[in-house]
Write a protein that binds this DNA or RNA. Structure first.
Lengths: 140, 140
DNA sequence: ATTTGCACTTGCAATTTGCAAGCAAAATTA
DNA sequence: TAATTTTGCTTGCAAATTGCAAGTGCAAAT
């Protein structure tokens, strides 16, 4: 957050998640139930270990994700989206809808995208509620 | 478009507009009626000339923008969003709404964002129709 | 007690970005 | 008509970022 390029909301937002990796990490958190450093490393796009570390730190500093104790082991770190991070879902939803129009969509996502197309608001709200519930439950 | 990192719609989309500059150029086309190389250079974020040239080329290759003859002069080049580019507006809208929640929004954009919050679908459709109309008219 | 798993860090090479200057064609001015 | 300015780039080089491979330190399993 050192230097802002401008006051523009698009520009400010891009400084938070406008790189090649951040939205992919957020995607993994939302759609693939990934939550650890090792999980993110396994994604198809093959992020480098140092880049992953720097992105996770930046996302944490920007309040998009937070670190938690992992229930299974002290050696693991559990990463979770904050409410601020969960609020990015509408953007990710719209990116999916745009991509659906201009790229072939993998089978395993087709159903989700179809739902989103049929009834955007409902699909979105359902998904966001799910994520927030997950966040609350674990605090307990 | 040389090498794809994965089949993921988010990843594919990011390869089109997921850098620090592309969405700002698209923003300028949508919200500030900018349409020439010189216009884009004047933006607050101060993009370098070579980077601007490379981004314009990439956006054109990806079918997001197109070059046109400028009505005023042969020395000028008119850049316009294609329909594919106009379809990015919902994403940009959602980014604005997210930003509105987490950043201070400049006065000159406040009204637009308020409209968007009050009646998202209507505001979005109005704006997209306007952009498409502009695109059609000029072809004549 | 030793090996394995996990979350990183470090060093260095390769790629990308950013800055400053230059350049050709078109338009304007003298 | 000639000189100057505008416009849209390109080029060369330095600085920053990214990517790869090889560690490192602590926790957990064997």
């Amino acid at each position: 957050m050192s230097k802002m390029r401008s006051e523009c909301p698009i520009s400010c937002s891009l400084e938070v998640f406008g790189d090649k990796w951040s939205l992919l990490i957020i995607r993994d958190l939302i759609f693939y139930q990934k939550s650890t450093y090792g999980d993110f490393l396994k994604s198809d796009e093959k992020i480098a270990t140092n880049i992953l570390a720097s992105r996770l730190l930046a996302l944490e500093e920007n309040g998009i994700i937070e670190k938690r104790e992992h229930p299974d082991s002290k050696a693991k770190v559990l990463y979770r989206l904050t409410n601020k991070g969960i609020d990015l879902l509408p953007i990710i939803f719209e990116i999916h809808l745009w991509a659906e129009k201009y790229f072939p969509i993998p089978e395993d996502l087709q159903e989700m995208v179809n739902d989103a197309k049929k009834n955007k608001e409902v699909a979105l709200n359902t998904m966001m509620e799910g994520l927030r519930k997950q966040l609350e439950e674990e605090v307990v």
